[in-house]
Every structure is written in structure tokens, then in C-alpha cells.
Design a protein around this nucleic acid. Structure first.
Length: 96
DNA sequence: TTGATGACGCTAC
DNA sequence: AGTAGCGCCATCA
């Protein structure tokens, strides 16, 4: 198991500022994960202590099992959702 | 070891 | 714009 990578992903997700969102692909690229699927796996295991609600798919849509829970949290942080979809082009986290 | 599954992404239709 | 198919890597049966 790559605990280093595991921790790297967690750190990256935790680095997402409030009011901003990031895609699984972005997290994978920043954390150096081989595939975005690994990001989802990490969130599934240790997502309890992480702002997982700021992580969306490339389409700007949250994961299916999350329901409106994620959208509600984002809206509370100032990220409005349009028809269950967030405007990535505007709220996408840019780690410049 | 092979096959199937999954908090996904990209391309094609 | 929405749906479908294939690829991706790690874990489990």
C-alpha cells in the first residue's frame, strides 16, 4: 500500500480553501495519484475528517451516493449549485 | 492468477 | 446537452 500517496491525497483535499471546489482529476494530479479513482478510495476511507464536499467530478456533479448533502454544504460555503451542478469554470480551485 | 468492482475521466455518438 | 463505451489503477473474491 502506498501510505505516502494516501496521505498526500488527504493533504491535498484538506488544502482546498472554503468557497472553492476541485475535481478528482485535479486532486490526483496535484497529489501525484496515478488515477482519480484512487482519490475516491481515499475519501471513502479517511474522508470523515476531510472537506470531501469540496471534491466533485469533472462534470461538476457530486458523486451519486452523496445526494444533495454535498451541494448543501457547498451552498453554505458560498458555492451555489445550478441544477445539481457547480460551475467549475468559476469555482474551480486554482492552486497557482 | 484471473475476473470483477469502484467518491472517475475522456472521447465518441 | 445527455448518454454510452473504453481506459485507468488498486483492492477483493
Amino acid at each position: 500500500m502506498d501510505e505516502a500517496l494516501h496521505e498526500r491525497v488527504r493533504d491535498t483535499v484538506a488544502a482546498i480553501p472554503a468557497g472553492r471546489v476541485a475535481t478528482y482529476g485535479d486532486i490526483a494530479a496535484l497529489a501525484g495519484a496515478p488515477t482519480p479513482r484512487l482519490v475516491g478510495r481515499v475519501l471513502r476511507e479517511d474522508g470523515g475528517d476531510l472537506p470531501w464536499h469540496r471534491v466533485l467530478r469533472a462534470t461538476g456533479k457530486p458523486a451519486d451516493h452523496l445526494g444533495g448533502e454535498q451541494l448543501a454544504r457547498l451552498a453554505d460555503e458560498g458555492v451555489p449549485a445550478r441544477d445539481g451542478r457547480v460551475e467549475l469554470g468559476r469555482y474551480r480551485w486554482d492552486p497557482r
